[in-house]
């Protein structure tokens, strides 16, 4: 900590040369970022991370298998499955990485995911002839215990709460983690 290493990155490097006020601001900024980072991938967020991980693998392996083995049977369904898998993977990465920009991207992706589940779920009921095979989002994800519908809603609630509570809410979560 006492030695200034050039590869330590800009925040600590610039902090060395700044006045005490600048140092305090830098620390505060780091803490806020650290708090947010903590919050979206840990505690309740870890449950989301595991579910998004599960769905990345589930939807991804299903899409890859179906695209390779039986693409011509139901191209639309399989491409939708692949799209949902990519979305799950992307949200998973943002949740694990953390930070404010990752949180915003994850929030936007959860919105896309929710829209996808609602549109595809409704379409499978209104015009089932368009889909020649099931997708992860068919019938609002009822084949997957309804998790595809629950996941984006929970994600949006969680990510919004992470923004509203700011850095202070990280403290109780950490207390329980240490206890």
């Amino acid at each position: 900590m006492a030695e200034a290493k050039p590869e330590q990155g800009t925040p600590s490097g610039s902090r060395q040369g700044l006045s005490t006020q600048g140092e305090a601001e830098g620390k505060a900024r780091n803490m806020t970022q650290g708090g947010t980072k903590h919050k979206i991938g840990e505690g309740p967020g870890r449950l989301l991370v595991s579910l998004y991980g599960l769905f990345t693998v589930a939807a991804g392996s299903r899409a890859v298998y179906q695209l390779l083995a039986q693409y011509h049977k139901a191209p639309l369904s399989y491409i939708l499955s692949a799209f949902s898998a990519a979305l799950y993977a992307f949200i998973l990465v943002t949740l694990v990485r953390g930070g404010e920009s990752a949180r915003r991207i994850a929030l936007a992706c959860c919105g896309v995911e929710l829209a996808g589940v609602l549109v595809v779920g409704t379409l499978t009921i209104v015009m089932p002839s368009a889909f020649h095979d099931q997708t992860v989002w068919s019938y609002y994800g009822v084949d997957y215990l309804g998790i595809p519908l629950i996941l984006p809603v929970t994600g949006i609630i969680w990510l919004r709460r992470a923004a509203q509570q700011g850095g202070t809410a990280a403290a109780p979560a950490q207390l329980t983690a240490d206890a």
């Binding site: 505690g43 309740p44 870890r46 449950l47 979560a173």
Partner: peptide, 13 residues
């Protein structure tokens, strides 16, 4: 890793 109630929630899921 998650030594909180949320670890238990993951196991439940």
């Amino acid at each position: 890793v998650e030594r909180t109630r949320w670890g238990s929630a993951i196991a439940t899921a």
